[in-house]
Design a protein around this nucleic acid. Structure first.
Lengths: 117, 117
DNA sequence: TGTCGACATCGACAACCATCGAAACCGCGT
DNA sequence: ACGCGGTTTCGATGGTTGTCGATGTCGACA
């Protein structure tokens, strides 16, 4: 596990100024849209929230897969979230633990920060 | 104009606690996902940023439609953003002006607020 | 070594979506 | 009344996505 996958790099470089401050560039829009799109599904949103609010900031798949869809579908959505750079995963024994990327919440919140105006 | 359309209501009710504080409910996830999905497209993200960062907080379609797609497509994306509750529109003379819903940035930023931990 | 449980991948299918050109709509001058 | 420029709506189309059951992989534990 641990990401031998195409994953967007959010942490690197100044990504980005608040959307309300200055027009986002085409290339930045491409990268950022991937993150928002990843949260643009109810099931993924619940999985993400379940993990983000879990004890210790991480959760095993078995603890969060009760969201009304089949197990392969849960796995599919977790993969999407990981490829979007929102989650990290690690295998420990029989279980796989997911946690929220440490920077991603701050980055996205900054993007949506209201500008003083 | 001015919204004779199905539009999600974000402002009303406590929507929501930060995703990282407690697991989001199924119904809230449904509503919130619509907003994130709306920003989950590079073209819409640029349109939104163009409007949010414009002078006076609003922009005419003619000022922002240079994003590399046809004009009907721009209109389609603006409609999506409006239906998601992110934008408001108003016709003034020949032109239609869009502005960011006054509450939406704060609401979404709050959703993504990192919890102290 | 063999089996079991947790999780990921595969293949298929229906639903959805971004995009376009054409056409309709709507104020505003003339 | 007419035409015009700005904007939306319509219809079609190709690509993407969410979902599932079946199958594969990987540790753990007899």
């Amino acid at each position: 596990m641990s990401n031998p996958l195409p994953v967007v790099d959010v942490t690197g470089a100044a990504c980005c100024a608040p959307l309300a401050r200055s027009p986002i560039s085409e290339t930045d829009a491409e990268r950022v849209a991937v993150m928002f799109k990843a949260l643009g599904d109810p099931v993924r949103l619940r999985l993400f929230s379940n993990i983000a609010s879990a004890e210790g900031g991480e959760a095993c798949v078995c603890d969060i897969q009760d969201v009304g869809v089949s197990q392969p579908t849960v796995s599919h959505h977790l993969r999407k979230l990981r490829e979007a750079g929102l989650l990290e995963s690690e295998r420990r024994g029989s279980w796989v633990y997911y946690r929220v990327d440490p920077d991603v919440l701050a980055v996205m919140a900054e993007l949506l920060a209201p500008v003083s105006a």
